[in-house]
Nucleic acid binder design. Structure first.
Lengths: 202, 202, 202, 202
DNA sequence: TATGAATGAGGATTCATTCAT
DNA sequence: AATGAATGAATCCTCATTCAT
């Protein structure tokens, strides 16, 4: 019965992904320490014990989830570099994707933020985020530097601008997590407008 | 023979301030849930029990401290409005003060961030922060609107720009709290450069 | 494969009853404040944590248990009214049942007493007892009044006699809880003799 | 300055008595474990530390106070025996004094009850009460026995009647401590009527 | 003598994790 | 694979007691 084995593997895979997806939501809302395994199990509609069939510990679950979020985000930076077009266009593409991802799935940015600001969070999770941030730094600095050379990006130290852009995205995610601020979501264009000079070619 | 009333008052005042100062550090680093009363007591060099002589609960301590941080920050916005000079100059003053405060005392921004993003944090603390944010919104929108009329501030919806500026400040505080990112502090001028147009009068 | 729902229900039921039974003993002996959750857990042979699977708090456990004791006792008064025979016979039946219950399970009367005399006891527990006492008052006053009309019960204000009878039962329970007084248990007949006139028909 | 020394001694004595009086109230209302030293200090209008100048510990304070209550009550039994008149008259005098004392100072009976029913109370306090109860037993049994011989007291085993009388007094004190039951205080005569036969001489 | 700040052991409660079924 | 009962370490908070002044 290789079919059955395969089916089991599939179930495992599905459940595992379902749990991770649910866990991002819950951790994102309540933080690492503020989230109970029971909360996640309940949100996923399974028993507490089952979570331990898929992840050896709360720490491992959180770390896995942060690593996925971080590597997903890091992939974005790589993709941005590989986009066609000018540096400014690629930077705009990157910002658009981040704003889009943020409004669609703000919890993902929140868990990254939490891995950063909470000393209670597993060190491995923080390291994953720091690695991702290094990628971001490299990619954004490259794009900004090139864009400035092209006269399409605002002047200023590329490292500092990169940090400011990153901070803004994180800060926006934090703001979005607060119901009270939902009404006024910033658009891609507002953000782009701060970093990219108006196109005088049009 | 007991000490004088005044002596007792002085002791209470000193200890209370010491505890609040220490608590900002510890809460800022570890978050609301991640901080044990014992951590604060140890950091202040007193016993666990003494903390309860000064604050009725962990929740009250955190709330007090967030309220102070929020009202201190709100005061800043009021002062900015009352500064002399053009809107752009006043906005620059505000940003400078925020950057300065942030590098001097990043934990203060962190506790504000934590009151926002953690559902485990006391609701009263969150409300204090939301009130402060409303002040910020009002002040910054006013300055931006006026600055745009004067042609000194970048174009764009003032509400969105206000939110972006606020997000950036919060995000920077979060970044600063991470040791790994300390090296590259953004300067006031980097931030100012994003929102205020270069002075063409010079 | 999990156990059946029924099996789980059974376990919960058993443990719950065991815990309540044990808790009556321990609370009865040590009082509300003097009883530690650990004492109850140890007496039941389970861990401290398990108690919280069944009762949300010490307060809820105590309240539940007092409510059960009170409603059980209140049922007795109702039954007394519904007995066949003269008022005096029904009163005698009631007293006999109380004395009997008291010697079999004195702790039950003790927790009722404690809910009454300790300001630290949960208010809800006290209210349950007061409700039961009101039932008692009504039933005993009715029986005494009728019995006096029949010339079978000692003269005197029925309300006062009711209160005296109730006080005596509570006081006896308190006395019985003290090892030193165990030897001399009062019999039903001693009590009955105080309130019911000797039968002159024989 | 022998005068000053004497004055100090007087102050000590006064304070000590004041503290004991206040403590009876508070312990009576809240029980041994439910009473904090701070409660007593506050009720007496002094500082917490001062209580320890007069009593070495909470336990000693409670014990002292129970011993005084017990010896005061024991004295009553002795006095009853020494009264003039028939056994029935002396028994009536005793009951009258108890009812009177109870309505004037119910807390005194409550602390005695608490010393009996709470295992958390100091053993020495309980022993004082048990000693007093033995006195009571002896005195009341003597009076009842004599009274029955005179045909003035209800028939029945004197020991059991003594226990019932004692229980009733304790139970009434407990009932009186409950606000809800205050309205209907039993009178001396109701109680007397249960134990002493109507005077046919009149 | 009198005060109240300070301590720390003790007890209620939570929750990650284990385990029998 | 799945369940939820069971455990116990960790944490908040209380309060008897000590002590400097």
């Amino acid at each position: 019965m290789p079919r059955t084995k395969e089916a089991y593997r599939q179930i495992r895979q599905d459940r595992s992904e379902k749990l991770l997806a649910v866990a991002v939501e819950v951790f994102g809302r309540n933080g690492y320490v503020g989230t109970k395994i029971d909360d996640i199990a309940a949100a996923a509609g399974v028993s507490k014990g089952l979570v331990y069939h898929y992840f050896p510990s709360k720490e491992a679950l959180f770390t896995t989830l942060v690593e996925e979020a971080a590597s997903g985000t890091a992939r974005l930076f790589q993709e941005a570099l590989e986009q066609p077009g000018s540096a400014a266009e690629r930077l705009r593409w990157l910002i658009a994707r981040e704003v889009c991802g943020m409004s669609g799935d703000p919890q993902r940015f929140l868990v990254i933020l939490q891995a950063l600001i909470s000393d209670a969070a597993p060190p491995q999770a923080r390291e994953a985020v720091l690695g991702m941030v290094a990628h971001e730094e490299a990619a954004v600095v490259a794009l900004i530097t090139q864009g400035q050379r092209d006269g399409q990006v605002v002047p200023g130290d590329p490292h500092q601008l990169s940090l400011l852009l990153g901070s803004m995205v994180q800060g926006m995610a934090a703001a979005m997590a607060t119901q009270a601020l939902r009404p006024t979501l910033p658009t891609t264009e507002s953000l782009v407008g701060l970093f990219i000079l108006p196109d005088r070619t049009g």
